[in-house]
Amino acid sequence: MIPAKFDYVRPSTVDEAVAALAAGGDDAKVLGGGQSLMPVLRLRLGEPSVVIDTTRIDEMKGITDSGTAIVIGAGTTHDEVTKSALVRDHVALLAAATETVADRQIRHRGTMGGAMAHADPAGDQPPVALALDASFTIAGPGGRRTVPASEFFVDYFTTAVGPDEVLVSVTFPKYTGWGAHYEKFNRTAQAWAIVGASAAVRMDGGAIAEARIGLTNMGPGPVRASAVEAALIGASSLDAIAAAAEQAAEGTSPNADIHADVEYREHLARVLTRRAVAKAAGLA
């Protein structure tokens, strides 16, 4: 299928992009890597009047170490994220989740910012951002603002990025030395996650000292399993992890679809959380 007609703008700075959005009005659409947007355009599920291609904005690319955090430009590709030593060393959970996104071709084009701004509830990285307390830098007509992950993801395919704004970067605090594992459960390798569990744990003396748990596809947006995180503190055995993981479905509100109903998703959340934590803790 062929997309409906649109105008095309390719700004080279964030300011130009914001200006183009303002000029484009309500029907303007930001194009990042395009790996979610292109099928939408082809199927004519969306018919923007103008597409603003942000893939040539240098400021939105690359991964830097700010000292206490890792800053990832919104236009950085999944492939670059997975191969980044900074990410692997300090935000290993993000690398683990990003490695599972779609396939090689899509990881070559798709971007961190695009995946976050698209906010698909089945996305692999938004729960990582939520669990790891990432923050989002957003540029708009009034300048820049920073939004914590807890306020960034609003609803199905909806984030705090306004219609006149552009996501510039995502900042992850360092989790150096933490164990990490992403347990993705899908029906075929290229299918979206039915449920996913992201776990990062800091071990101290063989026991879990701190834990961060994010869940994929367990609600309209990413879900943080706070009850599990609390219950895991001090856990040093598989039994203790399993007991904590029993709370994984608390506070979730998953959808039913052709692949899974609510009850099954809740069950998977518990099993996958247990497995992810056990692997992150080096106990499985």
Partner: peptide, 15 residues
């Protein structure tokens, strides 16, 4: 409900 290859799952090499 399975009107695309995103929803109608034909196996890949990894499956």
């Amino acid at each position: 409900l399975t009107a695309s290859l995103a929803d109608y799952l034909i196996p890949s090499a990894a499956d």
